[in-house]
Design a protein around this nucleic acid. Structure first.
Lengths: 247, 247
DNA sequence: ACAAGAAAAAACGTATACGAAATGACCTTT
DNA sequence: AAAGGTCATTTCGTATACGTTTTTTCTTGT
């Protein structure tokens, strides 16, 4: 274990390791996850295993079972769409708060420059590294929006949603081919919205800022639709919740 | 301490105990909280103490410190108002979803009956026990609203907010004298909103349902204002974040 | 007296042991 | 063969020990 001891703490190792197993589908939704399983899988003791389980449950990837242990939580497509809209609603409020207050010039400038860089990336969009850059810049934009709102409570609520594998603004972008026609249209729209959001915040147009940011979240929903059209399997989305198990 | 060993687990005992100390102000905002402190205070071992700390941090009552340990998190009045509005926005979405779907008749009936009972309680409102009943019925109403939305994701997001000592719909009602004139006006308005929300959900009037539920949350803000007028100290609200302490 | 550094104390992360609860397997009985 | 009960195994909650990191205290030099 002296090799790639990249991980600071045992707890983090167990946390990230288990998270990986869940996100990539190795552990299917509904699968039971016990402390000894973590201990065995990652070579940590029960204490950090326990901590990792608690954290994953807090993030919503695991659910406490009735009597003992945890199981991998399953989400339906409906859950995903609703999570996306909740993010949208909260980001809408963030945009409104931002438009209603004096956002520091530095923040607005940073938003401007991120929008400019995004313009550039969206204009090109050929290589994989540009895709990575898009994701990064997009994240940056949403971070700045939250910054501009100066609301710790919103940050807290959004954190919860964004911790879900389908809650981040980039959740599905990463799995798509960005220069594909249909995807590109959405990217262009999203980018127009980015620009308009900054404009409205600067102009103090709170109502439109709120609605724009809310609407903007549906881009993520559209990405998911497009991803679905490709028959890409998404491990942690259950095909229909618990509709009758008739067979 | 062999007396009322009502508590199931050591972890729960530590959790509730510590929560109490924070909410009643014994532990002031900013105060450091260490594992050994819990161990000593509640006679539990470090393992459950650790778990309790993690849970309280998750709920937002504690904040992890940079290097080690936790401290009691402090919230400003601004945070409180924003938390209230976030709850309002999310409950607004809940009301909209409810209005847009077929809510089971049983749920609507339960909402009706809660509204009727609330009518009754708001009409009287003299004794303390009626205040308790109001709080209970009010909680029930908000629970049913969430139920009617049938959205697990909203439930999850709202749970986070409602776990805060100022995030529940009843947060400040409990500290007020309900038959005081100013308070009573708000209670009456809140109750009218309750009724209208159910009506709109039943009628499928999603837009108005959303706006009503959103607006409804500001009753809590108003209660806080009224509480403030009485110079009641509220331990876990920091008097202005960084404003000068003019006296 | 003050700043910097060293030593002491406290707190933390982790591993592990033990009893209690839960789960699962096997066996008995009808 | 199915239902039910008993026992073994697994898993969990809790306590505690050990080495490391962090915090505090005390000392020392300027």
């Amino acid at each position: 274990m002296t090799e790639s001891d990249t991980t600071k703490s045992q707890t983090l190792a167990a946390f990230l390791g288990l998270r990986g197993l869940i996100v990539d589908g190795t552990l299917a939704p509904g699968a039971r996850v016990s402390e000894p399983l973590i201990v065995e899988r990652f070579g940590v003791s029960r204490t950090p295993a326990r901590a990792a389980l608690a954290q994953l449950a807090e993030e919503g990837l695991l659910a406490k079972r009735e009597k003992s242990g945890y199981e991998v939580k399953s989400y339906t497509e409906k859950d995903v769409f609703q999570a996306i809209e909740i993010r949208g609603i909260l980001e809408g409020m963030a945009a409104r708060l931002a438009a209603d207050r004096d956002v520091p010039a530095a923040t607005l400038q940073k938003m401007d420059s991120v929008v400019l860089e995004l313009d550039d990336v969206v204009g090109r969009l050929t290589t994989d590294s540009e895709q990575t850059e898009y994701v990064h810049l997009n994240n940056e934009f949403h971070r700045l929006l939250l910054d501009a709102s100066d609301s710790e409570m919103l940050a807290m609520s959004l954190d919860r949603i964004k911790a879900l594998p389908f809650g981040s603004p980039n959740a599905f972008v990463e799995s798509l081919t960005l220069n594909h026609g249909a995807v590109k249209k959405v990217l262009i729209m999203a980018q127009e919205q980015h620009r308009a959001i900054v404009e409205c915040i600067r102009a103090g147009n709170a109502t439109r800022a709120e609605r724009l940011a809310h609407e903007h979240s549906f881009c993520a929903a559209r990405y998911l639709q497009l991803l679905r059209a490709k028959d890409e399997p998404i491990p942690w989305i259950a095909e229909k919740a618990k509709r009758a198990s008739r067979k």
